[in-house]
Design a protein around this nucleic acid. Structure first.
Length: 269
DNA sequence: ATCGGGACCTGCTTGC
DNA sequence: TGCAAGCAGGTCCCGA
């Protein structure tokens, strides 16, 4: 159930199990994901795991031969299990480790990816990505500069990975509410000052969500450690028709590019 | 260049 | 109870 906080939580959950280990091999039971699972993975054998990191919503596993890219799509999860653990439905890929554990990729909708990029170069999918939302180079000024003349809805604009990565449907809505910006407003018609507030809101919302994800980290490797959602802190997402937390106005529902949006018509302009 | 829409999938909820 | 429609947290690619 991955937006960026879930991916970050996953990274932190699997890291201790992978660092310092050797990848013995990869078992692919279903290769038809968003893109076919990279053929090169089938041949990997006894490769030390050099490190793990995250870029946007991609989990990157560094091996001597290159880089493994895992994206959870809309429904993907990773679990660390003991070798021999019975398979569940949609357990598509296993990474076998030298300590008898397995990193198991499950994805009912198969929108996720398991790819391999040989050598030192970044995978093409990573090339066009914008700044990390929690990094110093993501600022209101950046949003302002990039948005001049743009007519797209500001919600679509901040969900565009070239603008900033890791802002999915939930957190886009939450951030716009916090910043008091109407999701349908043209990106080019938001002031510098309001973009400062929006950038700050995005950072706060994501940082808090990551923190909350961290609380479920402890049982992450347990049987069904479904990352909790901290739904109680969602102010507008999924609340269309209910009263605004601030002003009691009935929250409205709308759509931006096939994605539902809820917002307060009073607080967000 | 920019924008909106379609596409890729399964599973769960809703409504007749 | 059964079945179809609608919707779900992502994001690439296409045509206008």
């Amino acid at each position: 159930m991955p937006e960026l906080p879930e991916v970050e939580t996953t990274l932190q959950g699997i890291r201790p199990h992978l660092e310092g280990r050797v990848l013995r091999g990869v078992d692919v039971r279903e290769a038809r994901l968003r893109w076919p699972v990279s053929e090169a993975l089938y041949a990997l054998k006894d490769s030390p795991v050099l490190g793990l990191k995250r870029r946007a919503k991609y989990l990157l596993i560094q091996l001597a031969e290159g880089q493994l890219l895992i994206h959870l799509g809309m429904s993907g999860t990773l679990r660390v299990v003991e070798a021999g653990t019975p398979l569940r439905k949609h357990d598509h890929v296993d990474l076998r480790l030298d300590d008898g554990k397995v990193l198991r990729f499950n994805d009912p909708r198969r929108f996720g990816t398991v790819l391999f990029q040989a050598g030192d170069d970044d995978h093409p999918l990573l090339e066009k990505l914008g700044p990390e939302p929690l990094g110093d180079d993501f600022t209101g000024e950046w949003l302002f500069a990039r948005s001049r003349g743009r007519k797209v809805a500001v919600k679509s604009f901040i969900m565009d990975n070239a603008t900033v990565v890791g802002v999915g449907n939930i957190y886009a809505q939450e951030s716009l509410f916090l910043a008091g910006i109407h999701p349908s407003r043209a990106a080019g018609r938001v002031s510098r000052e309001r973009y400062e507030r929006l950038a700050e809101a995005i950072k706060v919302v994501l940082a808090k969500a990551i923190e909350a994800g961290g609380t479920t980290l402890r049982d992450f490797t347990r049987a069904d450690g479904q990352p909790g959602y901290f739904a109680q802190s969602l102010r507008v997402y999924g609340r269309a028709g209910q009263p605004c937390i601030t002003c009691k106005t009935r929250l409205k529902a709308d759509r931006h590019g096939q994605r539902s949006t809820s917002y307060c018509p009073q607080c967000q302009r």
